[in-house]
């Protein structure tokens, strides 16, 4: 299963599941909804954290948190 931290800059996928409930509730409220597209916008100069986007929502997240977000990258 691919996770969000494995994407490279400007790659995207579909959010399938967020395996931590607290994180899931927080991300859902910030507009990162299951079944919608997520894109890795930027990796910080020191390789962590990363900026990800979904629609017009932009947020930064650490790689160890992004690891908990399962995505589908088949298209």
């Amino acid at each position: 299963m691919a996770t969000l931290d494995q994407l490279k800059e400007n790659e995207s996928g579909i959010i399938l599941n967020i395996s931590d409930e607290q994180l899931a509730v927080q991300l859902l409220a910030m507009g990162f909804i299951l079944g919608e597209q997520v894109r890795l916008e930027r990796v910080a100069p020191l390789h962590d954290p990363i900026i990800v986007s979904s629609g017009t929502n932009y947020l930064s997240i650490r790689k160890n948190e992004a690891k908990l977000i399962e995505i589908d990258t088949t298209n």
Partner: peptide, 9 residues
Amino acid sequence: SSFIMEMPI
């Protein structure tokens, strides 16, 4: 420890 923060436009 967490760093989830909105990056406003």
